[in-house]
Simulated assay, not measured.
Amino acid sequence: MNVEKIDKSGQKKNARWESFKEWVKKHILAIVLVASAMVIAGVFIIAIHSIKYEQTASVELKLPTKKPAPKKFYSPLTGVEIANEAAAKLPVTGVMIENSPAARPQSGLKKAGVVYEAVAEGGITRFLALYQGEKPALIGPVRSLRLYYLSWAAPYQASIAHVGGSPNALSQVRNGNYRDIDQFFNDGSYWRSRDRYAPHNVYTSGEKLDQLNSAKGYNNSEFTSFARVDGKPVESPNATSVNINLSGSLYNTSYAYDKASNSYLRSMAGAPHNDREGGQIAPNTVVAMEVDVEARAQNYDGYEDVKTTGSGKAYIFQNGAVATATWSKADINSPLKLTDESGKDVALNRGQTWIAAFTPGRGSVSWQ
């Protein structure tokens, strides 16, 4: 064994170790400072990441939730938007309005929600104007009731404003099942105008009808009427001029479609049909129904009644177009329905609906 070589190798190792210890002693402060800096930097980085995470989590928790769209309410009578659900249950009032030449121009027709038009007698037509909620300040002239108008009004759970009526109509409306507000028994709610002569001068007002309904406890009406839809002019109109002949030249009507308002400007006896206070009458939808007539079933007095129950052909004019439909009504208290060839309800435009009932052979409907 070579002892000298081992000793020299060990001496060299000891010399390197001693040299390293001397270097550490000289630089110990710098080493400590560097190590401390590294520790502090690590803590700072961790803290920054923690803060960022907390901020991100906080922002995510505070994201605003999407508010649901406000609920809309629509009139069951006209389909137009109304203020609230309570307005949809306000009482409906039907007013019999005269249409003889001496009664023109009428008051209140323009603001009616639905109007039914038919011959009363002698070729003279008459209107049943239905209102819900806000009513005109002036309505009239008010005239007598016929059984078929009562049949059209009954499904709306409507009060019936009239001045007397045919024997069978009065027998029915006074049987306790209807809201009869006949002028004969409620004289304070009607008055006679001095600018017209009797019997064409009985008037009422929206305010007086509301007061009368309230006094009798007629505070709401619950009913189902026509399906409604937002109207839009068709691209290819096929019915922009409509003629509905009900009896004769003094009572025949026509409608000119106005695309701008998507309504039908009504004329009667060859001249624009104006409401005395409201101006041009222009329903959003016009319906012409074919109906039969029959002699009055009780207390025969030589007059006829329109048959309102059963079914028949109807023509619906809206958006500049015509659609053929079927009208049907099961009984006096059932609603009038308008259905297509598949039996589905035809949706009518929101707004005023004017329904004219004519008897084929005595009246007619045409368009172009």
Rank of each mutant, 00 (worst) to 15 (best):
Y264E: 00
D301M: 10
G320A: 12
T309M: 02
V322I: 13
P272F: 12
A314Q: 08
S249W: 14
A321G: 04
Y255N: 01
R296K: 10
V234N: 03
E235N: 12
G270D: 10
Q298P: 01
G302T: 06
Y303I: 11
S236L: 08
T308S: 10
A295D: 15
S241I: 13
P272G: 03
H273W: 14
N238Q: 10
S311V: 15
V234C: 02
T285Q: 03
D301T: 12
S236C: 06
N319H: 02
N238D: 12
A288P: 15
S261E: 14
G279W: 08
N245A: 02
D275W: 02
A271M: 09
M289S: 04
N245Q: 09
V291R: 09
E290L: 00
G312I: 07
I244D: 02
L246Y: 03
D275C: 02
S241F: 15
D275S: 01
A314T: 08
H273V: 03
S241K: 13
A239D: 00
Y251C: 00
Q318H: 08
E290T: 09
Y315E: 00
S241Y: 15
A271Y: 10
A282N: 03
W327H: 04
N243V: 15
L250A: 05
G312K: 08
V322L: 05
S254A: 01
G310D: 05
K259I: 07
N319V: 06
D301S: 09
A239T: 03
N274F: 12
R296M: 04
I316A: 00
T324V: 15
K307N: 06
L265T: 11
Y300H: 15
N299W: 11
A288W: 15
G270A: 08
L250Y: 10
N284E: 09
Y251P: 04
G302Y: 09
D292V: 06
T285H: 01
R276K: 14
A297G: 12
D258N: 12
N262R: 07
Y255D: 01
N243I: 15
A256V: 14
T309K: 05
S261M: 08
D275F: 01
Q318F: 13
S263T: 13
A323E: 11
H273Q: 11
A297W: 11
N262M: 13
L246I: 11
